[in-house]
Structure formats: C-alpha cells, structure tokens
C-alpha cells in the first residue's frame, strides 16, 4: 500500500514534467500533439550519447555520485540534452506544424503529429537499436534508503523525485517572477490580447517548444534512470501524459503537475486491484472518468 503510494508519486513526478510541455503546446498551439512523448525519448537518448562522450573525454566525470547511479557526466549530459531536445521541438515545428498552422485546421496537425511520432520513434530505433539501454550498468541495489519489505526505496528514486520537483519549481519561478513568464501565461490566456500588448507570437511559440522539449528531456532521463531506455518509451508514455494534461485542465501548468501525480498514483494503485497487464489501460480510464465528471479538468477553463 505504502509502496504503491511511493511508486505512484515517483512515476507521477516524471509524468508531471512531461505533461507540462504537452499542456502548454495543446493550449497555446491548439492541438493535441501525439509526438510530444517522443521528445522524452529524444532527450533520454541524447543524454545517453552525451554521457558516453563526456565520460570518454573526462573519465573523472563518470564517477558515480555517492549512492546514486548518476554521475556529473550524466548531469551535464542531461542539461545538454534538454537544450538539444528543445531545439529539436522547434525544428519539428518549423518543418511540419508551422506550415500546417497557416493552411490547415488543428485536427490536421493532430494527424501530422501521429506521423511525426512514428517517424521520430522509429528513427531512434534505427539509430540506437531496438534493444533497451541503461545509463549505467552499476547496480545500485547495494544501498537502500529503506529496505523495509513494505517499502523499498532506492537512493536513485529519491534523486529522481528531487530533480523533478526542482525542475518544476524552476519553471514555477520563471512563470511567476519574470516578464517572460508573464508573457507566456498571457499568450496561453489570450493570444490576441498578448499580441496587441506587444508580444510577438512566433517567439512565444518557440519558447513554448523549448520549455516543453527541455522538460520532456529531463523527464526522459529520469524515466530512463528509473526504468530503462527503449525506443518505444514514448509510445508507452503518451497516453499517461495526455491523461495528466486532461485531468489537470488544458493550459494549466499547475494542473499538469497535479495531473501527473494523479495518473501516477492511479496506475500504481490500480495494479493492486487489477492484473498488471491492464496497466496500459489505466490512463484511458482516468481520461474517460475526467471527461464524464469534470470535462475541463481540475484547473481548465471551458472553451
């Protein structure tokens, strides 16, 4: 029971990070981006590559920090991956979504996002192989923070939670303390009014993709540390991310954070009741329940 609670919060923190970018894109660009989850894969595999390169150049960086299976190299690699993933998101927007935005309706963009997801996912498989990968082969089972059979906690898991919360905290500060953050919230609320107040939409759209991509990369790395990297991790996560965004209410960053935890907890508690095989269906049930009970989510506005 308490293990399910901890696991749910842990997975939830990763989902929250991924869902923030998704909810911003869905709200500001007005389409459900089914390729968003692939940005988690892009970020994770970028970090894997950078981590290997950095560790090769400066082996001292590759030493694991304390009881964690994370190294300074991985930390730096994650930052670089966040930047690269953000830029990848901007590039994809320029290649595909921006062109469709001008000529086609939002649902055409949803269509295209499925195609983009297929291409991204399978390109990753082509480049990195279909097999799963891990950031480190070192087994960190040796030390446990809690080895009570009712609650097993690995140091890595606490690290993941702290990093995820720190990333969300940083975003919160940007959104509530900087005029750039006000501008982003303004565009989310009312793009026309934002424009007449001097905010250039194209640069805000770029910012949205960079934030969304960056957070997705961090989420992807954390997911990779907790589980493992696989080219289909995006496919496995996409529905959970949508569920988190919908439960929270589209456009609400706070909602997406909370939604991530709700979906994480729902999934971890559900396997106490249902066979594990049904787990992939849980996010769908969360979505359906939300749409029936509170269609605009916890913090969403009717539109």
């Amino acid at each position: 029971m308490i293990q399910a609670l901890f696991d749910g919060v842990l997975v939830g923190s990763i989902l929250s990070l991924g869902a923030i970018g998704l909810t911003l894109v869905m709200h500001i660009l007005r389409f459900a981006n089914f390729s968003h989850a692939e940005l988690l894969s892009v970020g994770a595999y970028c970090a894997l590559t950078f981590d290997a390169a950095l560790s090769g150049i400066a082996p001292v960086l590759a030493e694991l920090i304390g009881p964690f299976s994370m190294s300074a190299a991985l930390a730096l690699a994650t930052l670089a991956a966040a930047v690269v993933t953000g830029l990848t998101a901007v590039l994809i927007d320029r290649l595909v979504f921006r062109r469709l935005r001008d000529t086609a309706g939002p649902l055409t963009m949803v269509f295209a996002s499925f195609g983009v997801a297929l291409i991204m996912r399978n390109l990753i498989a082509l480049v990195f192989g279909l097999q799963t990968e891990r950031f480190t082969d070192a087994i960190s089972f040796a030390t446990m923070i809690s080895s009570d059979p009712l609650l097993l906690i690995k140091p890595d898991q606490v690290g993941i939670l702290v990093i995820a919360l720190a990333a969300m905290g940083a975003l919160h500060l940007v959104l509530t303390r900087t005029t750039l953050g006000f501008a982003l919230r303004a565009v989310a609320e009312n793009p026309t009014l934002a424009q007449v107040n001097g905010i250039a939409l194209p640069s805000m759209i770029r910012l949205t993709w960079i934030i969304g991509g960056g957070l997705a990369a961090v989420a992807g790395v954390l997911y990779g540390i907790d589980n493992q990297l696989s080219p289909v991790m995006g496919r496995d996560l996409v529905l959970s991310l949508f569920a988190a965004a919908i439960v929270g209410g589209l456009g609400s960053v706070t909602g997406a954070m909370l939604g991530g935890f709700i979906v994480g907890l729902a999934s971890s508690f559900a396997i106490l009741l249902l066979p594990a095989g049904y787990k992939p269906a849980i996010p769908f049930l969360v979505i359906l329940a939300t749409l029936y009970v509170r269609p605009n989510g916890l913090f969403g506005e009717a539109r």
């Binding site: 005029t179 006000f182 501008a183 919230r185 303004a186 609320e189 009312n190 026309t192 009014l193 934002a194 424009q195 007449v196 107040n197 001097g198 905010i199 250039a200 939409l201």
Partner: peptide, 30 residues
C-alpha cells in the same frame, strides 16, 4: 499587431482586454 506599439498606437479590445490570470502589477509589467 505586436509591432503597433512602435508606431505609437495602442488598442484596447472590447472584452477580455486584461489578463485575468495575472495580477494587476503583472498585467502592467507585461
């Protein structure tokens, strides 16, 4: 529309002309 300010022109829409999710100070700062 976002460049009108540099022409010395401001526009106040009829409805939804402030950001309801931002504070007064944040609206002005924006």
């Amino acid at each position: 529309p976002d460049r009108l300010g540099s022409f010395g022109l401001s526009y106040v829409p009829q409805t939804a002309n402030i950001f309801t999710t931002l504070s007064v100070a944040q609206n002005l700062a924006l």
